[in-house]
Simulated assay, not measured.
Amino acid sequence: MAAALTSLTPDSGPATSFTTVVIAGSGFADVGPLTVRFGTQATTFTIDSDTQITAVAPTGTGTVDVTVAVESNGVSNALPFTYV
């Protein structure tokens, strides 16, 4: 089963600096390689638990979809992150 996202904290951040974002959901631990993307940009992250990831939002503009891809299980639902 693909990871499922329920919230981003915060769900917005500065366009020109890196923002730490906590991603809440399920299906993050012990599922194999993960990729966290803000729009099309993959970013660095830490898996805190099966229900939480801490990621770093790359620089960007506008509103982008945040997703978590699990190599063997597909891509999660998307949640919006807005650059301000």
Rank of each mutant, 00 (worst) to 15 (best):
T82Q: 01
V64D: 02
T51A: 15
T35H: 01
P33V: 15
G60I: 14
A3K: 13
T46L: 09
G13T: 04
G25D: 10
F81C: 10
P80V: 07
L34D: 00
A2L: 05
A55M: 07
V21K: 01
T63W: 05
L8E: 01
A3I: 11
S17G: 11
G32Y: 03
V66Q: 12
S12D: 00
T40E: 06
T54R: 14
D65P: 13
T51Y: 00
T63Q: 06
T46H: 02
V22T: 15
T82I: 03
T43S: 11
T44F: 09
T19A: 11
S7V: 07
G27H: 01
D50N: 15
S76I: 06
A69Y: 02
D50M: 07
G13W: 01
D30I: 12
V56H: 06
V66H: 10
L34Y: 01
A2K: 13
P10L: 02
Y83W: 03
V21G: 03
P58D: 04
M1F: 00
R37F: 04
G25I: 06
M1L: 07
S76W: 02
S76P: 11
F18D: 09
L8V: 05
G32I: 11
I47L: 02
F18G: 08
V84N: 12
I53T: 11
V31W: 00
A55N: 06
V68G: 10
A4N: 11
G74E: 03
T43V: 13
F38N: 08
V66T: 05
N77M: 09
M1V: 15
G13P: 03
T40M: 03
N73M: 14
V84E: 05
V64T: 13
S76V: 08
T44K: 06
D50Y: 00
G60N: 03
A57E: 02
V22P: 00
E71Q: 13
A24H: 13
P14E: 06
E71G: 04
G62M: 05
D48S: 07
T46P: 00
V75Y: 00
P80D: 01
T43C: 11
V31E: 02
P14F: 07
A69T: 15
S26M: 05
G13H: 02
M1T: 15
F45N: 10
A55T: 08
G62L: 05
Q52L: 12
N77L: 09
A55Y: 02
S26C: 04
A15R: 03
A29Y: 00
V22Q: 15
T59Q: 08
F81G: 07
S26K: 10
V70C: 08
F81M: 09
Q52S: 14
P80C: 04
A42N: 01
A78D: 05
V21M: 02
S7T: 13
D65E: 08
P58N: 05
A15L: 11
D65L: 03
T35P: 04
P80L: 01
G32S: 03
T59C: 09
A69S: 14
G25S: 09
F28K: 12
P33N: 07
G13N: 03
D65W: 03
T9K: 12
T35N: 07
T54C: 02
L79C: 12
A78L: 04
A78R: 10
